[in-house]
Write a protein that binds this DNA or RNA. Structure first.
Length: 400
DNA sequence: TCTGGGGTCCTAGGACCC
DNA sequence: TCTGGGGTCCTAGGACCC
């Protein structure tokens, strides 16, 4: 017997999120072209988008395109609050919610038909609730796969709802321009265009080997799957752990080149990051220094320390060494952005356990105490507690 | 369109070990 | 003694997403 899968996945995406929050909170902004952020546009309302204003566009360009543009300063607390309220409605709507960003999530509504109605009915109700309870417009795509749901919501924006029935998927997917595929950006699109490939259906006609030859292995496989409407990815049922934490500062036109001025920026970045790390009970082993130059080229310098840590002094020392190695490049090219990213993250308790156990494993181990127990067994934990006590590690959640 | 800030994943070469 | 293959880690860069 052949059972056709239902369209059970919702992709819900708030419309022009940052700008909409401002328009909601300040009625005088409604119906007007609004851009969030001064120097660079972080988000644009649909009225602003209509004149060609886009995010990441320079403020001067945006004003030229749209003389009536109202520029507002970002209010991150308001965005976080609105996002939390919307995600509460998501979780009230579906048992499995996978957040993609502050304003976007996948919902798995399979098995809810008897309780909540069909997926399209659930999606319609979700949109109404977000509008009524949070005051924001949200677009929802409904389909059998995450990719189709995502593409559907993008097609339905703004303030829309689009259902892709399982028997009309190819009809929907194949006429789309290649850049609509999730994961195809400017560079990949250009590579495809250069070979005369502009529609998804044309990619589907190609062999996987051909696409791998054009795009490389991972990208080629990915695009081949999506173009052929294969996307087995499930809505994630467990929250994925963060794999890096970063902070950066744009340095403006008149770039400070002196070692001292850059050091002050670096101290601020590291301090902010280590506070966040400690707050999240996480530690890192690798410090990445990010540089951007006057001509917008980028470079990174990284260093891995011996033991995972969230200590300001250790990470600052590593970051300063990286800055030293980069100074000749900076003096040569003129720096416009300085950033730090901390990667190779682990939970602090897991590292404290794993370090005495086995140094090698500690490097990449990103686990809870239970994971460590499962992997190394109870005896090993007892041993770790003993060794750890010896070395002065604290062991949260474990017996003395 | 002259460009913010926060992330994810992939690739590729070299070092090192077994 | 010479040579091979496989695996992991580190570093640097690049593409993409919101």
């Amino acid at each position: 017997m052949f059972v056709l899968m239902e369209a059970n996945i919702l992709h819900a995406d708030l419309d022009a999120f940052f700008a909409s929050v401002h328009q909601r909170d300040d009625p005088s902004l409604r119906g007007k072209p609004v851009a969030v952020g001064g120097g660079v546009v972080m988000a644009a309302s649909y009225e602003a988008k209509a004149c060609g204003v886009r995010s990441a566009m320079g403020g001067a360009t945006a004003r030229r395109l749209c003389p009536d543009l109202v520029v507002v300063t970002p209010e991150f607390d308001a965005y976080v609050e609105a996002s939390k309220a919307v995600f509460e409605i998501f979780r009230d709507t579906a048992p499995y919610v996978e957040g993609i960003s502050i304003d976007e999530a996948f919902l798995d509504v399979s098995g809810l038909e008897r309780i909540s109605g069909t997926p399209p009915a659930i999606a319609a109700r979700l949109r109404k609730r977000v509008r009524a309870e949070v005051g924001l417009a949200i677009t929802v795509g409904v389909a059998r796969t995450k990719h189709l749901a995502k593409v559907a919501s993008a097609s339905a924006k703004p303030d829309g709802l689009l259902v892709v029935p399982p028997d009309r998927e190819i009809e929907f997917l194949h006429p789309l321009p290649v850049e609509r595929l999730w994961g195809v950006g400017a560079v990949t699109a250009e590579k495809l265009h250069a070979r005369g490939l502009t529609r998804v259906g044309e990619l589907a006609a190609l062999g996987e080997d051909e696409l791998i030859e054009i795009l490389g292995r991972a990208s080629g496989r990915h695009v081949h799957s999506l173009a052929n409407n294969r996307d087995p990815r499930q809505v994630d049922r467990v929250r994925r752990r963060r794999r890096s934490m970063g902070a950066q500062r744009a340095l403006g036109r008149r770039m400070p080149r002196s070692r001292g001025a850059l050091d002050a920026v670096l101290v601020g970045l590291i301090d902010k990051l280590t506070q966040r790390m400690r707050g999240a009970h996480r530690v890192c082993r690798t410090v990445v220094l990010r540089l951007r130059f006057g001509d917008f080229t980028r470079a990174t310098r990284s260093q891995t320390v011996a033991e995972a840590t969230a200590e300001t002094e250790i990470l600052l020392t590593a970051a300063r060494e990286l800055l030293d190695t980069a100074m000749p490049l900076i003096e040569d090219q003129g720096i416009t952005l300085l950033g730090v990213s901390l990667t190779n993250l682990a939970n602090d308790d897991a590292v404290q356990l794993a370090l005495p156990l086995e140094r090698q494993k500690a490097r990449v181990l990103d686990a809870t105490i239970d994971d460590v127990r499962e992997r190394f067994g109870n005896d090993a934990i007892t041993r770790a507690v003993l060794i750890g006590r010896d070395k002065g590690f604290s062991m949260p959640g474990l017996p003395d």
